[in-house]
Design a protein around this nucleic acid. Structure first.
Ligand SMILES: [Mn+2]
Ligand SMILES: [Mn+2]
Ligand SMILES: [Zn+2]
Ligand SMILES: [Zn+2]
Lengths: 142, 142
DNA sequence: ATTGTTTTTAGAATCATTCTAAAATGGCTT
DNA sequence: AAGCCATTTTAGAATGATTCTAAAAACAAT
């Protein structure tokens, strides 16, 4: 399980990722990992931080999100051209995407079965399979 | 079948899409639909046009790609943050994406089975299901 | 405290895409 | 053919998310 709650858990998590537990990284990690799983954009996380009264630069938010992603603490989702979401749920699962509201919802990974795939070229390895179910909220976003 | 080869087929296709068969649209349509299926970006199609000696503005390439997409002649793929691909294959199928080279390859639609999905909210409709198998070409791109 | 490394930051730069407003073209009618 | 009006194309500016730059701040180790 990787449900961090205490300050020490957060510090551990960042340190284990090979990153210095700086004030900014710890605050962002707390926002990301202290509640349930989330899907956030850099801008969202940035304004959430400012809202909570602690200021980080947007550049640091981007740096941190990418560092966490490289360390395997986050997964980057491409669901909409020109905007990246970061997912705190790194287990195998897929997504429901509400195109109108921009909201993402998880779909359990075992709800999808993949049959035979074409043979891959020499030395190629599947790095990930992304499944996005695009939904049109025919009613205006609640 | 929608394999267009003759000039008349191309004109028909554009006209049936509710668009005037202008020189630019016909030339772009010919590039897109005269060979086998393709996955192109706006930039790619634009420089391909210039390469063939007929000049279109990039704005027109974007306009045309979106108009063709709206008309159902193309499908827009989001596979990489910050770059849109347009797919001339509009039948139900999925994609293999070579992350290093940026190449897309089709995967037959019946190679994938989707189980039960979570209940959708009132009036919501699935508009599309995108499956992207990301491949790391462990060897340098051929 | 000193030093050397890592991190943060403001602001500039990038880059795909969209927008704007003007010029060109197309389709009709006379 | 000439005139008219709607549609299309276009160059260039604008946008917006992201990345880069180079300098200041924070950190860890001595
Ligand atoms: Mn990225
Ligand atoms: Mn688009
Ligand atoms: Zn998720
Ligand atoms: Zn395809």
């Amino acid at each position: 399980m990787r449900q961090a709650v205490t300050s020490n858990d957060i510090i551990e998590m960042v340190r284990d990722a090979g990153l210095r537990p700086t004030r900014q990284r710890l605050s962002l990690a707390r926002l990301l990992f202290s509640g349930g799983d989330r899907h956030v954009t850099a801008e969202q996380l940035h304004s959430e931080s400012l809202g909570q009264g602690f200021s980080v630069s947007l550049a640091t938010v981007y740096n941190t999100l990418h560092q966490f992603t490289t360390a395997g603490l986050l997964r980057e989702l491409v669901v909409d051209a020109g905007r990246s979401y970061f997912d705190t749920n790194i287990s195998a699962h897929h997504h429901l995407y509400f195109e109108d509201s921009g909201i993402l919802r998880d779909v359990a990974g075992d709800n999808v079965a993949i049959g035979e795939l074409p043979a891959l070229p020499e030395g190629a390895k599947i790095s990930r399979i992304d499944i996005i179910i695009r939904v049109k909220d025919c009613a205006p976003a609640a």
